[in-house]
């Protein structure tokens, strides 16, 4: 399936709000992913996500235009309180979602048993990073597609695809987790709020800024995450992108303030056998969504037609911001 895979590559696009969903659909998404308005999804941000009525209308809009809708229910249900998460799955099925994106083993068991006709995708938050882990989810729950964690090189992705029966989906653009997704408690160590439990990371409610000694200081909870000369543009203080001291050095110990751009790796990812390319950013603006989705769709169409991939637009999008290939290139490690 590797040589002609470009014809089949699906573009999976973020939709934080109903207007953003329509923009992504119109810009050429093969599928959009979105979540309900609560802590059942990993982008539980104020002003984001879909009510049940929103979701029904969104699915209708997308399906009329031959675009699929995947609903992310990808946080880990709170102990003793799984009803909210189970209802999200049941409603996704009732609303006609094309798939749900899940991370929790108990929730996968529930979905497989109660909604046998609902297509299951494994969220990146499940951190399935080997063929053995993927086979656990496919063989146990009938998972049809796995979103791979951002810890693998392209060669390792090719090895995985050769060894598993399901489809794989990889992130190609947007915010980059440096730590393996779904296994990071850095945010809750500082704020008490975590991706796994609350669907948030380094939440704005715990961010503060002040000026001191000619520096602009960004803090998360009780800790300084960065300090830059005043009047320079400051990046949002996501914990793992902060500047710290360690081992006698000062700097970004974990990762620079970069975002992922794998647009140059599209042919390699296609040859590695991936089925779908995912764009991060349900919290982004409609203009951003329109530009990124349009550019990636043009790139995929060019690959399918064996014409040159128009990378210019994508390069413009990451202009002014450093981009990385992340773990897709082994030297990143």
């Amino acid at each position: 399936m590797t040589s002609s895979a470009a014809n089949d590559l699906e573009l999976i696009c973020p939709a934080g709000t109903p207007p953003a969903l329509r923009v992504a659909v119109d810009a050429g998404a093969h599928a959009v992913y979105c979540g309900f308005q609560d802590e059942t999804n990993a982008r539980n941000f104020p002003g984001l996500n879909f009510s049940r009525a929103d979701m029904a209308a969104a699915i209708d809009y997308a399906h009329q235009r031959n675009c699929k809708v995947f609903i992310a229910v990808n946080t880990f249900p709170r102990a003793g309180d799984a009803a909210l998460w189970r209802r999200a799955i049941d409603d996704a099925a009732a609303l006609g979602a094309d798939a749900v994106i899940l991370a929790d083993i108990g929730l996968l068991a529930y979905a497989a048993e109660r909604q046998p006709d609902l297509r299951l995708h494994l969220s990146v938050q499940a951190a399935a990073s080997s063929p053995e882990a993927i086979r656990f989810y496919t063989d146990t729950f009938g998972v049809k597609r796995v979103v791979l964690p951002r810890v693998l090189s392209v060669a390792e992705i090719a090895d995985i695809n050769a060894a598993v029966a399901c489809e794989t989906e990889v992130f190609v653009f947007g915010g980059l987790c440096v730590m393996e997704e779904g296994r990071c408690s850095l945010s809750s160590y500082v704020t008490g709020r975590s991706p796994n439990m609350h669907g948030v990371c380094s939440p704005p409610s715990h961010v503060s800024y002040h000026e001191a000694d000619g520096s602009f200081v960004s803090r998360l909870g009780n800790f300084t995450i960065n300090r830059i000369p005043a009047r320079q543009p400051a990046a949002y203080p996501t914990l793992c992108k902060g500047a710290f001291r360690a081992g006698g050095t000062v700097g970004q110990v974990f990762e620079d303030a970069v975002s992922l751009d794998a647009s140059k790796l599209l042919p390699a990812l296609s040859r590695a056998g991936v089925k779908a390319l995912k764009i991060e950013g349900r919290q982004r603006s409609r203009a951003y969504t329109r530009a990124v989705v349009g550019a990636f769709r043009a790139a995929l169409d060019a690959m399918a037609n064996n014409t040159e991939i128009p990378l210019g637009i994508l390069l413009q999008l990451s202009e002014g911001q450093s981009a990385t290939h992340g773990a897709y290139v082994k030297t990143w490690r």
Partner: peptide, 14 residues
Amino acid sequence: TPLAISARCYHARV
């Protein structure tokens, strides 16, 4: 407390 694991080695990076 273990808080995170990554493909990247931060000891090596530092």
